[in-house]
Design a protein around this nucleic acid. Structure first.
Length: 562
RNA sequence: UGACCCAUGGUGUAAUCGGCAACACAUCUGAUUUUGGUUCAGACAUUCUAGGUUCGAGUCCUAGUGGGUCAACCA
């Protein structure tokens, strides 16, 4: 993981240090990650997880995992499990501090009674439409509900009966009594409890009233002794309500701090939209390697280290903007470059025959596994007179500065000999189907006395030893940097699916070196000169599937594109 | 036409008490290289605008401008 090289403090750390200086929380820092179990975690959550855990760690504190499970109709145990798996995979540990907002339902209920007794909450019989109508607009004040002036006794009675299930769903809510003319819409008597005859994934049928987010979140923070409740910018307007609710009851008061959410280009991080992609079958599932979900990135071949490094590098501020996805790709390349063994894999095979090499001879070539890591050692690679090279590594009529193979030209076979192309064989359609080459005998890698200079070095696989595997070449899911942010001429939002990249997945057959047979699910490799790949968990020993995580940087491709 | 928040290279961030605008990614040059990878060297900004305070302003003050969020019995 990235070492702490940052000397400056981000704005949250500055706030924490101010709190420490004034001793607001007794020098403690206790954070929490509060996902709602209604979907899979994505890269934006990864940043939040990283932020909360690393902030606490830096100041010697702890981080809780708390499921914000206050809406039984959308939440499910399936998500509770995947979320825990993802956080663990990222490398974070909540130890014994796994909580659920639903653990606090009884306590929350007594807070509600307390609010009622203090005249700060009331039961409203209005319909949702009536409440909305009286709420006003941002520029027009709201008006009080006809039920706003009920007596404390009546409110207490009604609320208790709400809990007992005496009223129909939607017929009554509990609202805070704050200020119907507040310029902050959230302070216009927000709904605190609603009636829902729905089974909860943990409390079953015990409750038929459920607290709303604002009711549950701050109080849960308080109950857990959270000091710094870090969330995203859209909760900024909720902070006055967060503060009001806690002060109204008079309990431990955490500080809510909002930062701008991560917004990588060419991605979408709306749970609703991601669900749509899955449900409409545009992808194979939540863990499709093109998904920005943690499970998708994992299957794509990303490492936790690279994701955390990305979270660190994007920083913590209150400005919102777009983070170039190239930064994420750089993070994963950086890590994979250090840890992956280099492998020979020919993705688009062209057969060559080395005419002056004995037909039945097989030489084992010793090659370095990872030039960035000497401890990775070496391995042996079979070499014979029939090889596959990359179709793109030969050109019959090459441009200037083309360092690869061409008629009459030489090229180094990585870890083996220098060869020269003598003859191009084509089929009836004029397609090149094979090359006849000759090798330079005393040019063997490591013991080259030939004096021949080859400008280029290419990768190869011995035909009789090659394994055919499936390779899935992934590209970005969208063709537009901000697929969710476009409007047509009339100002109507354009469906983000319009920008789906039709070439986000290309499935091919490749020829790879035999040692790849031993790969295990999610093992990561660099396919020489091609990119980083990892073994897909759907692979069987008869059918290996490799997912391309990311290509290598390719300055030649960049140059020739122009 | 309300409230809250934000504004520094193409992008994301940094700049202590007001003191030569720094880092990463991207882009472009060049060197090295048995991966056109890696590595190394170099290039790339009048800090949203206009006033003001000051010897000195990205930083402080005033007025603008631009952008984001808020009108679920979602979180």
């Amino acid at each position: 993981m990235s070492e702490e090289k940052r000397t400056s403090l981000n704005f949250v750390e500055q706030i924490i240090e101010e709190h420490n200086a004034s001793d607001r929380f007794g020098q403690k820092v206790h954070t929490r990650f509060p996902p709602e179990p209604n979907g899979y975690l994505h890269i934006g959550h990864a940043k939040s997880i990283y932020t909360n855990f690393s902030l606490a760690k830096k100041y010697g504190g702890k981080t809780n995992l708390r499921f914000d499970d206050t809406n039984p109709v959308t939440e499910d145990t399936e998500y509770v499990e995947s979320i825990q798996e993802d956080i663990k995979w990222l490398g974070f540990d909540w130890e014994d501090r796994l909580f659920f907002a639903s653990d606090y339902f009884e306590q929350l209920y007594t807070y509600a009674l307390d609010l009622i007794k203090k005249g700060k909450a009331y039961v409203d019989d209005s319909t949702a439409e009536e409440i909305a109508a009286l709420k006003g607009t941002p520029t027009r004040p709201g008006e009080p509900s006809p039920y706003r002036s009920r007596t404390i006794e009546e409110n207490l009675d009604l609320f208790e009966r709400m809990r007992k299930g005496e009223f129909e769903e939607g017929s009554k809510v509990l609202r805070a009594k704050i200020d119907m003319s507040s310029p902050n819409m959230l302070l216009r008597d927000p709904v605190l409890y609603r009636i829902k005859f729905a089974a909860h994934h943990r409390t079953g049928d015990k409750w038929c009233i459920y607290p709303m987010y604002d009711m549950a979140h701050g109080y849960s923070d308080s109950i857990e002794g959270i000091t710094h409740s870090v969330c995203t910018l859209e909760f900024e307007n909720h902070r006055p309500l967060y503060d009001w609710l806690i002060d109204a009851v008079g309990i431990h008061h955490p500080q809510q701090i909002e930062f701008s959410r991560l917004n990588p280009s060419y991605m979408i991080t709306s749970k609703r939209k991601l669900r749509q992609l899955v449900e409409e079958g545009h992808l194979t599932g939540w863990n499709d390697p093109r998904m920005p979900t943690i499970s998708g990135l994992r299957r794509r071949g990303y490492t936790p280290e690279s994701i955390c490094n990305f979270a660190e590098k994007t920083g913590l501020t209150k400005r919102d903007g777009i983070t170039d996805v190239l930064l994420l790709e750089d993070c994963v390349r950086q890590h994979l470059n250090k840890i992956t063994p280099r492998m020979m894999a020919v993705l688009s095979p062209l057969k060559i025959t080395i005419t002056n090499y004995p037909e039945d001879k097989v030489e084992m070539m010793e090659v370095v596994n990872n030039p960035e890591d000497e401890s990775a050692g070496t391995r042996e690679l079979p070499f014979s007179n029939k090889l596959y090279i990359e179709t793109t590594d030969f050109m019959e009529d090459p441009p200037r500065k083309y360092f690869r193979l061409a008629p009459g030209k030489v090229v180094r076979l990585k870890g083996a000999y220098i060869i020269q192309c003598d003859e191009v064989i084509k089929d009836d359609a004029g397609e090149i189907i094979e090359l006849k080459c000759s090798y330079i005998e005393n040019s063997k890698s490591g013991e080259d006395t030939s004096g021949v200079k080859a400008k280029g070095t290419i990768h190869w696989v011995s035909v009789p030893h090659a394994e055919e595997v499936e390779v899935r070449l992934y590209d970005r899911l969208f063709t537009d940097p901000t697929p969710g942010n476009h409007k047509d001429e009339d100002g109507n939002p354009i469906d983000f699916k319009t920008f789906l990249n039709p070439e986000s997945l290309q499935v091919i057959k490749a020829q790879v070196e035999p040692s790849l047979q031993n790969a295990r699910p999610l093992d990561k490799f660099q396919f020489m000169r091609k990119g980083y790949f990892c073994l897909d968990p759907d692979s069987t020993s008869e059918h290996l599937i490799f997912n391309r995580t990311v290509t290598l940087r390719d300055s030649w491709a960049k140059k020739t594109k122009k």
